[in-house]
Design a protein around this nucleic acid. Structure first.
Length: 463
RNA sequence: UCCCGGGUAGCUCAGCUGGUAGAGCAGGUGGCUGUUAACCACCUUGUCGGGGGUUCGAGUCCCUCCCCGGGAGCCA
């Protein structure tokens, strides 16, 4: 049951005149006088294979004539050069077996354009479309490339926990993980839910970041990375936020902020170059139908150094911009979307690294530079906003303690994290890269819900 | 969560200042053709997002709820 060939391989090797067997789903059918043309796709690549079905087939009248878009088939026959325009080769069928029908009156996918919004409502069928299939192949290729980059660079892959008991990781609202009976939870004397009686004996949540745990392994193995699902219970309704997304988080011992940025830039360029090289056909689809400038944009990113400016410089640039922003700019504010867009899209027109943000607006674990700033960095992409957020970590015990107090974090909850600074502390740095945002950039897809197979957003978790 | 804009046939959408619903595609039937988003003819399809209200009359106006899209915030 596994002797058939992938269409991707056939189109690459073109074994003309040879008998081949393919299995896949019908994309479209066209009929000529005595002939039926079936285009079948097996998901191995974007391209379809045209199958020529003639009345000589044993089941031509009984089955073949009834085949419609969506049916799954086995086809055996001879691969031949196609006499007509539109495709180089075609499969002249000697046997066609229908595995599964797809009644035309009820099969939702038609041979026409569908809105991405509609496709989202049929999450179980949408990967059979050209565009969502291409996204899936690119996503797979880039996942592999992430591992390849880090493995080549001497990083170790660490599986940080999905379920965490760190009380407040500071990265956003968390989903609670509980095994308590929600209709009748145990209560403490003061009437609150008694998590001491819960599965873990304490409150637990889904992770919002593997960073803190990755630091543990960085301070043992040197250079590590995590790449896994991350959860935020924020009520975010935008085209670039998900409640469940995948994040790449390297963490490097004996590394400062500049080294951190260097790795991030190298990684992003490696991944974009990998996609251009290995997913050419799929990217061309997006270049044709989603964004005519896509390939030029991707190539452009590879050709230039990322721009790098400090937060203070960014503020000065914005103040000199001579335009009225909805949110006025002054030193100390967090940069708003409109500010980031102005900097990346109008001033620099390429990825931009902004460093050394005000201490007062950043979390406790970022390394203090001086009275005013911390060693943080964001990488902003034109059209997307924040792709990467990272920092050098505070490795000085006393300073970390000071920062916890400053930001209202209870040191008792982070004894293990403080221990890393008590015992053999080392300068270290890391960042988080939103995998879906990368896929958005590489595909040009406007909505992040189209670049993850099963998007989870407020009010929506299909399947 | 806030601000806009939407929810009309299976899909994509039209429907002016309230008068009782339409197109293209899909689907069905027939024809034509080594076809290519095939083509030609004919045919079918609607709780006009839910609920309430104004009116002789509501897809159209008002209220409310739900959902979707864009922007904002939160961030990756």
């Amino acid at each position: 049951m596994n002797s058939h060939q992938r269409i991707a391989d056939l189109l690459k090797t073109l074994p003309i005149g040879r008998t081949v067997e393919v299995k896949g789903w019908v994309k479209t059918r066209r009929d000529a006088k005595d002939l039926s043309f079936l285009e079948i796709n097996d998901g191995s690549c974007l391209a379809n294979l045209q199958v020529l079905a003639s009345p000589g087939l044993a089941n031509f009248a009984t089955d073949v004539k009834k085949i419609t878009t969506g049916c799954s088939l086995r086809v055996k026959g001879e691969l031949a050069r196609s006499p007509a325009k539109g495709q180089e080769v075609e499969l002249q069928a000697r046997e066609i077996e229908v595995y599964g029908w797809a009644p035309a009156e009820s099969y939702p996918l038609q041979k026409k354009h569908h809105s991405f919004e509609f496709l989202r409502s049929i999450a179980h069928l949408r990967p059979r479309t050209n565009s969502l299939g291409s996204v899936a192949r690119i996503r797979s290729a880039l996942s592999f490339a992430v591992h390849r980059f880090f493995q080549e660079q001497g990083f170790y892959y660490v599986h940080t926990p999905i379920i965490t008991t760190s009380d407040c990781e500071g990265a956003g609202e968390m989903f609670t993980v509980t095994a308590l009976d929600l209709d009748n939870p145990p209560r403490t004397a003061t009437g609150r839910v008694d998590f001491a009686k819960d599965f873990f004996g304490r409150p637990a949540s889904l992770t919002v970041s593997g960073q803190l745990e990755a630091e543990v392994y960085a301070l043992a193995l040197g250079r590590v990375y995590t790449f896994g699902p991350t959860f935020r219970a924020e009520n975010s309704n935008t085209s670039r936020h998900l409640a469940e997304f995948w994040m790449i988080e390297p963490e490097m011992a004996f590394c400062d902020l500049q080294g951190d940025i260097d790795v991030a830039e190298a990684l992003l360029k490696y991944l974009i170059a990998y996609a251009l090289e290995h997913c050419q056909e799929d990217i061309e689809l997006f270049n044709r139908f989603i964004d005519k400038e896509l390939i030029a944009k991707l190539s452009g990113v590879l050709e230039q150094e990322f721009a790098r400016i400090s937060y203070t410089e960014a503020v000065e640039r914005l103040q000199r911009a001579g335009r009225a922003f909805e949110f006025p700019v002054s030193w100390g504010i967090d940069l708003q979307s409109e500010h980031e867009r102005y900097l990346t899209e109008e001033i620099f027109k390429r990825p931009l690294v902004v460093t050394d943000y005000p201490r007062a607006i950043k979390p406790f674990y970022m390394r203090v530079n001086d009275e005013k700033t911390v060693a943080a960095m964001d990488i902003l992409f034109p059209g997307l906003g924040e792709m990467v957020g990272g920092s050098q970590r505070e490795e000085r015990y006393d300073m970390l303690l000071t920062r916890m107090t400053e930001t209202g974090v209870n040191p008792d909850d982070y004894q293990w994290y403080l221990d890393l600074r008590r015992f053999g502390t080392a300068p270290h740095a890391g960042f988080g890269l939103g995998f879906e945002r990368l896929i958005q950039f590489v595909t040009g897809m406007a909505n992040i819900r189209e670049v993850i197979p099963f998007p989870r957003t407020p009010g929506a978790a299909a399947l």
